[in-house]
Computed example of a mutant assay.
Amino acid sequence: MSLLRTLTRFPRDTILSTSRRYAHTASAHRLPAKKLLWVVAGATLTVSSAFAVRQNTIRLDANVVPPIEPANKDPEFIIDPATGIQFPKTIKVASKVPLPMLSLVGVGVRTVSFLRIQVYSVGFYADLNNPRLKLEPSMTPDEKIQEIVRTCACEIRIVPTRNTPYSHLRDAFIRAITTRLRDGRKDGTTTEEEAIEAASPIRKLKTLFPNTALTKHSPLDIFLYPPTPGQPRVLTFRDLGSIESDWVAREFVLHYFEGEGPSPALKKMVIKAIESL
């Protein structure tokens, strides 16, 4: 039986008692001090390692920060400096209808709690070559972002830093969209008709997510189709399903830019990128 397995079978008091007997034996036989320290320290280190092996479940609220990977020299990608996760500069969304190439506008990390735990990296893509897109120099950054989301095909790409339950993502999405609905009704930016029509798509949004986890570093693509006259806007969660609602589809993407947004780093990079547009 290995020393690790032997030590984990006994309580801490027994191990400390054993360490004292080592010390007594060393004194009686005049063992060198360095050997004694190695014996005691080795026992302590092995016990600590045993406890670490047992605690191998990482939860969303665990204070674990993944190591940052070396900078990628590939010019086709941008690295999130906070997590080391890379995003392609352009993406083409597969669809039955022709869709434009989307350009990466910005990336950032999403953190939660006062411990600043990293949950996922997020990238924002948009069809900046859309001829209908009208950005004026007099527009504020927030006005430009709203114009891009209202006019163009867009995508939010989420890449988790660890295995993340879909239920956590679902709850965060629902909180964000219901908060925007409540605030919009208060300040008059959302009409009562829009609020009533949004109720059913929000209920459907709750049902899209399975009772499993999104695997670490596996992207979740949330694609906002461009507006089509006479039809509600479509928001598709890749491999999960879609909802059809002008208000929900648009506001879901815009919530990433409300105030500082879920990722201040994302909004900061997006603003910097569109300043010259």
Score class of each variant (00 low, 15 high):
Leu99Asn: 12
Leu99Thr: 09
Pro100Cys: 08
Pro100Glu: 09
Leu102Met: 11
Ser103Asn: 13
Leu104Thr: 02
Leu104Trp: 00
Val105Leu: 15
Val107Asp: 14
Val107Met: 06
Gly108Glu: 05
Val109Ser: 08
Arg110Asn: 03
Thr111Gln: 05
Val112Asp: 12
Ser113Cys: 06
Phe114Leu: 13
Phe114Val: 15
Leu115Ser: 06
Arg116Trp: 07
Arg116Asn: 11
Ile117Glu: 05
Ile117Gln: 05
Gln118Ile: 04
Gln118Cys: 01
Gln118Arg: 15
Val119Asp: 04
Tyr120Asn: 03
Ser121Asp: 04
Gly123His: 10
Gly123Tyr: 15
Phe124Trp: 15
Tyr125Ile: 04
Tyr125Glu: 11
Ala126Pro: 04
Ala126Ile: 10
Asp127Asn: 10
Asp127Gly: 03
Asp127Glu: 09
Leu128Val: 13
Asn129Ser: 08
Arg132Thr: 02
Leu135Asp: 14
Met139Glu: 05
Asp142Thr: 14
Ile145Phe: 09
Gln146Asp: 13
Glu147Lys: 14
Glu147Phe: 10
Cys152Pro: 14
Cys152Gly: 07
Glu155Phe: 01
Ile156Val: 14
Ile156His: 06
Ile156Tyr: 06
Arg157Ile: 02
Ile158Thr: 06
Ile158Asp: 04
Pro160Ile: 01
Thr161Leu: 08
Arg162Asp: 00
Arg162His: 10
Arg162Asn: 01
Arg162Ser: 01
Thr164Tyr: 00
Thr164Gln: 02
Leu169Phe: 11
Arg170Trp: 13
Arg170Ala: 00
Asp171Lys: 00
Asp171Val: 00
Asp171Met: 01
Arg175Val: 02
Thr178Glu: 13
Asp183Pro: 15
Asp183Ala: 08
Asp183Gly: 05
Arg185Met: 10
Asp187Arg: 06
Asp187Pro: 00
Gly188Tyr: 03
Thr190Lys: 13
Thr190Ala: 11
Glu194Thr: 02
Ala195Pro: 05
Glu197Gln: 12
Ala198Leu: 09
Ala199Asp: 15
Ala199Ser: 12
Ser200Leu: 12
Ser200Ala: 09
Ser200Met: 11
Ile202Asp: 07
Ile202Ala: 09
Arg203Gln: 11
Lys204Glu: 03
Lys204Leu: 07
Leu208Thr: 03
Phe209Lys: 01
Pro210Cys: 02
Thr212Ile: 13
Ala213Tyr: 10
Ala213Lys: 13
Thr215Gly: 07
Thr215Val: 12
Thr215Ala: 08
Pro219Leu: 07
Asp221Tyr: 05
Asp221Met: 10
Ile222Lys: 13
Pro226Tyr: 14
Pro226Arg: 15
Pro226Val: 00
Pro226His: 11
Pro227Trp: 09
Pro227Leu: 08
Thr228Arg: 14
Thr228Glu: 15
Pro229Met: 07
Gln231Cys: 04
Gln231Arg: 13
Val234Thr: 15
Val234Glu: 06
Leu235Ile: 14
Arg238Ile: 06
Arg238Tyr: 12
Asp239Glu: 13
Asp239Phe: 08
Asp239Leu: 09
Leu240Glu: 09
